[in-house]
Design a protein around this nucleic acid. Sequence first.
DNA 1: AAATAACTCAACCGCAGTAAA
DNA 2: ATTTACTGCGGTTGAGTTATT
Length: 282
Amino acid sequence: MVRSPSREETGLKKGPWTPEEDQKLIDYIQKQGSHGSWRHLPRIAGLNRCGKSCRLRWTNYLRPDIKRGKFSEEEEKLIINLHSMLGNKWSLISTKLPGRTDNEIKNYWNTHLKKKLLLMGIDPVTHRRRTDLELLASFPKLLSSSSNSCSLINPLMENTLGLPTDTVQLARIQIMQALLQVLLKASSFSSSSSSNPNAYSNLVLNNLLSSSLPPLQTFSDSSNSSSLPPGTSALGESFQTPTNQIDLNETSATKSVSTRSLDALNLSDLDDSDLSWKDFLE
DNA sequence: AAATAACTCAACCGCAGTAAA
DNA sequence: ATTTACTGCGGTTGAGTTATT
């Protein structure tokens, strides 16, 4: 597919619509009774815009049946519920919310609902409880209690580097993943005589996590979160009720480690990406 | 009061699917 | 069967606004 010509090439206007342009578009569609061909509409209606821009302006903003204003609690719940079943199928979701456009729902999801779920400890993609967040939350404590706390990490944990929030969030998650992998490898190293290395890893990490973490919020303990029954996702599958006991079989890091021979692992087995963590552990 | 950061959302982009030629 | 035109969709951007320092 060829990239559509730029403004300079076509002479077509881009950017925000003026009230005059809006009126031209409304007048044309009202006069015709329908938009007809979006491609030809701008020329006939006297608009210096591409058809695509006209269609978007009409469907997302000018259409008379569009509902404006804040999303209600019922709408929020419905979106969360539908998203858990349909994923990012915004147009499909919008068919269940009369007066709301797919774009509006998508924006609302990205700016409000996603954060809301994350704060509740729910993964906005899977709609399940996030075990990685528990681990992440425990690391500042873990690091501060360590005698050789890594100077690279603390600024990130407290975001004193002036980096964009998303970048710091991503960095934190990557740190957490790396730490988790190293912890698992190290714990399996120290338990080389154990007959059940996975159980040992679980024990080590559960002890770490159960030290001082507050219980996580879930759908079931938040008043304005979801219409889902406690302990279930919208898909009807069960998830764990709040507890600091984590089934490590569910974490991706554990999956990657469990496929290897844990008894045979030691620090020298860490790959290059883990090198900086060797110093931290030793 | 000014500067900066964070947030919001309209609009854009590119890809995919489909109908028509 | 292939090409072209068109529409719809989801992800992303960036200007404007609001909050914070």
